[in-house]
Design a protein around this nucleic acid. Structure first.
Lengths: 206, 206, 206, 206
DNA sequence: AATGAATGAGGGTTCATTCAT
DNA sequence: GATGAATGAACCCTCATTCAT
């Protein structure tokens, strides 16, 4: 019997997804290359090979597609870092969080356009909205974090607040450090940054 | 006695300064009330009581006046906090920096439009450019900071990096906390935040 | 039988051509009545009954439509003269060219706005670009000229240079003569002018 | 007793002339370098080292100064050619006019910006207005021409018309030939052109 | 679902001209 | 005569959005 998603494995459905993906990929390329301000909906539609009107079948406007992209890209960064974490045998939450931070830094170092794009948007609002509340098919970040704290031997006063502060510290500092090497290049900044993260965590231990 | 052609020295200059100030004040009001995006140069000029073309005598475009305003407003926030600091007898650098943070938070709590306006722009680039390098007539912030570190009994590994991290942590967290009370209202966040600041500083002591 | 979605073939295309023609006709009228400098794109669009933005779907800017018009109008003048030439039985190239010159003069005498418009633009660059190189659907001027020289009993040193000189002499002189009757009204100038054309041609015979 | 123009050989007078000359020289430089359209009165005034308002003390607007310049520059070209003519012992008017044409061509070949500037403006209206009617202090061109025809052994049907046609032929052809080498580079065009001039003259002999 | 021609409000910017000093 | 800050009309051009096909 055919389930909910059955239909004849829809050509139309696949086509729709392809169009949306084409729009997203094109938009990301244009946003990072020439800036959001200088990218028009015409640009995106034309380069994606669809008509201008078609854009509006999938997104409300330019900012709709931007937000969609930021969330997706940020999620991918976290997912990759978490994937790598699984290959380690780090046990203390402190080590694990520093590992994640390190891996995130490393991804942004290799892809500065991505850094510029999500830059400071990798912040609490988006993090929470996208990653904590809506466990999607691909990655259950909320679950991951909850579990991490539950399995940790060390307990913290307010895990959410702690993550919040670490995230803001991380996202705030790497932008200037990676892009402008100011006040220090990222490799020289890391010791200070990781020390700070650890000391924040320790100050919150119960 | 003044003759017909005897200009009051600097009358034209004063006039020019007034025009520029009128433009700046108006722009700030409009930017905070209706957003930068929805504020047009026509709006600013009209409300400031000058012709549209006059705007261009003083500023290159909308972003020129915005940057000017951010730097000025951010400077004022620091200056006021520092002014209050002088009325205390706090001696340890840790206490003094937490005091400054507290006072800055208090200013932004009372003036959310200001927070939205300079929000995350209160960042390293602007801070350094405007406040560290160019001691202006009104406030010698570079001098203040240098002196603070020199008179401190405690020494730190890298004062600049330390200030950088504290500033990013502060500016990153207060936005979400003051405006959205997320993850906590600012008054409840403060203990965590100040603890974190202190622990960052301690981790950097030599 | 036509279905609901069966477009009349080329209905949209016809519509586009009409819009473009409306713009061209309106632009010509405004250019000749109030000058190119004093004609704005708004003027043209409004009078043509289309939106301002529509103008930019068809032409890059004011000078784009001007060049288009000059070429078209100049082409029409030549085409009409050549059409009349066919009704004669003139055989010598000298007679045929003087006939063409006479007919061109006569057209401009009757339509001074046209003269002012293409005036000195009826020159070599445009003549060559538009009329010699790209035989369009309506008139194969290059072919006409080539044929004229090939069928002529008389041969000339350099036909292209000869046409060039005659054209510049003609276009240079009629402007002042027709519009300002200076140094002579066109009817009195003609004998001198035609004599000059004939003598130029004779000087180039091989 | 002091005559009308006396005054103490005026410093003010000299100053005024200098300002006007500075404006004229600057305008010419800007017109030829960046085009009349893209040259603003501000540009001219600033580069000439005078205030914007001062421009209006000497010229009505941009086109006033342009016309002034065209007439002056065109006059200089003729004057130089005529000066050289004096160093020859050419007697026939035909030879003398071809000599002038040759010398004018040579000047424009060496200074293409000048050619672009006066280009087709080296035409009858300007020629007549500036050069034939108003014998100025520096050059009595009307006198020169009148004399040339009077001393010529050969008589012509209508000298003015003849000069008119030759001038238009010359000014029309050299532009395309010198700037674009089309239909021939100027050196190759010359034989055809001079032959044409001579044959025009011969066709007008009485 | 897809198209893309048409729209037209609206922004940014320029610059000739004035006039108080 | 000289200045140059101020003016503000004028204009170009973009581009998000619609809708008939």
């Amino acid at each position: 019997m055919r389930e909910r998603n059955a239909k004849v494995p829809g050509k139309a459905e696949a086509n729709k997804r392809m169009k949306k993906d084409a729009l997203l990929n094109t938009a990301f390329e244009l946003f990072t290359n020439q800036g959001i301000h200088d990218t028009t909906i015409s640009n995106i539609a034309e380069k994606a090979g669809v008509a201008k009107g078609t854009f509006y079948l999938y997104f409300k406007d330019k900012y709709d597609i931007r937000n969609f992209l930021i969330a997706r890209k940020a999620g991918e960064v976290f997912a990759r870092a978490d994937e790598e974490l699984k290959n380690t045998d780090l046990t203390s939450l402190e080590d694990r969080i520093v590992f994640l931070a390190d891996h995130i830094i490393s991804q942004f170092s290799k892809d500065r356009t991505l850094l510029v794009f999500i830059s400071k948007n990798l912040s609490w609002a988006i993090f929470k909205k996208q990653l904590l509340s809506a466990p999607d098919e691909e990655m259950d970040l909320p679950g991951i974090i909850r579990e991490a704290f539950e399995t940790s031997h060390t307990r913290y006063r307010n895990p959410e607040v702690m993550i919040f502060m670490i995230l803001e510290l991380l996202s705030g500092t790497i932008y200037s450090s990676i892009l402008y090497e100011d006040p220090l290049p990222i490799d020289e900044l890391k010791p200070y940054l990781f020390d700070s993260i650890r000391s924040i965590m320790r100050s919150q231990e119960i």
